[in-house]
Amino acid sequence: MKIAVDAMGGDHAPGEIVKGALKAAKILPDIQIILVGQKDKIDLHIPEDLKSTIEIYECSEVIEMDEHPAAAIKKKKDASIVVATRLVKEGYANALVSAGSTGAQMASALLGLGRIKGINRPAICTVLPTLQGGKLLLDVGANPDAKPENLLQYAMMGSIYAEKILGLKSPKVALLNIGSEEGKGNELVQAAYDLLKQSSLNFAGNIEGRDIPYGTADVIVCDAFVGNIVLKTIEGMSSSLFQLIMQKITASTIRKIGAILVKPGLKEIAHMLDYSEYGGAPLLGVDGTSIICHGSSKENAIFNAVRVAKECIEGQIIEKIVDGLEKSTQK
């Protein structure tokens, strides 16, 4: 199994990206890493004894975060994300991982891989830590202007992913709304509610934002405008709350003594809330496995993103989505 890693994408590229890819190549079984990018810069971060074991696919250009995604991928044909996507399209690689521009990765996937037949718009699907374990939220960044049928397709794809990757039997699907009662929300979610209610999914109705951390639903569906705000808010709240706890429990000598006793528990909480432990977010709905990583991803996040890519391939997510669509249209 070959995973193409965009070595030039992200705030800490190529150093941390290469480190994470090397870790994946060492630990994950049956994985071959293809580092895509500028060879002279990548080489600096590969130990001499490993250079003969890691493939580097040379390309000369990089798409920066501030560039217009669609224009950049058309102009920069030899950019790392474009080349990595092409390797998947041509079958040279089974999946790609990138921490670069999300917009560029989206555009490259749509133009290079295309959509799965029957899917109107893809969705970025991320795992959120909750009191009941990891739960899915989608869309968190692909399409801020969604239609009701898009939300239905997100729910279907998310349900398949939750079952095949997270191991959840008959995942409970919920629609993110401003109230739990039927009939709440704007025109989009009201129309989506009706479609979800009529579907064969295990639809549990509406869910409010405050319910998300409690894990009351396995798959939470919304448009990307709402989803991205929710995701960033949760990330910010988790980080700030943990910093506040650390400040307060070390504010005096007595508290510091007590902090020693609770330190193991705090480490466990920090581990649960660490986005890098969940790896990247798959772009569901495109005809190829494309894993989107946080722009600030470091070694551990890239390692786990490669793990997610491997799980998607082994779980045959694309094939399962195609099969699910076919069955839904036959009803």
Rank of each mutant, 00 (worst) to 15 (best):
I302D: 02
L50D: 13
V230D: 09
R121K: 11
A146Y: 10
A84L: 09
V322I: 13
T233C: 11
P144W: 05
S276E: 12
A305I: 00
Y275F: 14
Q153C: 02
G20E: 06
V36Y: 04
G258R: 12
K327F: 05
D66I: 04
A155D: 09
Y278V: 08
P29K: 05
E61G: 03
V230G: 01
M237Q: 15
I249G: 04
D11I: 12
E208S: 02
S328N: 14
L113S: 11
I33S: 04
C312P: 05
Y275G: 06
P129C: 10
E90I: 01
H12Y: 08
P14M: 02
G167Q: 14
K172S: 14
I229C: 08
I260F: 10
Q132L: 13
C312G: 03
S296W: 05
D274S: 08
I17K: 04
A25C: 00
S296M: 04
P69M: 14
G215C: 00
P144V: 03
D287P: 07
K41Y: 11
A224W: 03
P264G: 02
N202R: 10
P171T: 06
G112W: 04
D49F: 07
S296N: 03
G9L: 11
E235V: 12
S180Y: 09
G15A: 10
K89T: 05
V140H: 11
G288V: 08
T253V: 04
A192E: 01
R86K: 15
P47V: 14
S60H: 04
K164A: 11
K172Q: 03
L113K: 07
N94L: 12
L96R: 10
L283N: 07
L22V: 09
K197C: 06
F225A: 07
D43T: 06
S328E: 14
D78T: 07
E182T: 05
L22D: 04
P213Y: 08
D11G: 00
A99M: 12
I116C: 03
D194N: 06
V173S: 00
D66N: 12
E277F: 11
N94T: 07
G215P: 00
D218S: 05
L196S: 03
L110K: 10
K172H: 02
D139Y: 12
E149K: 15
I119W: 11
E16I: 02
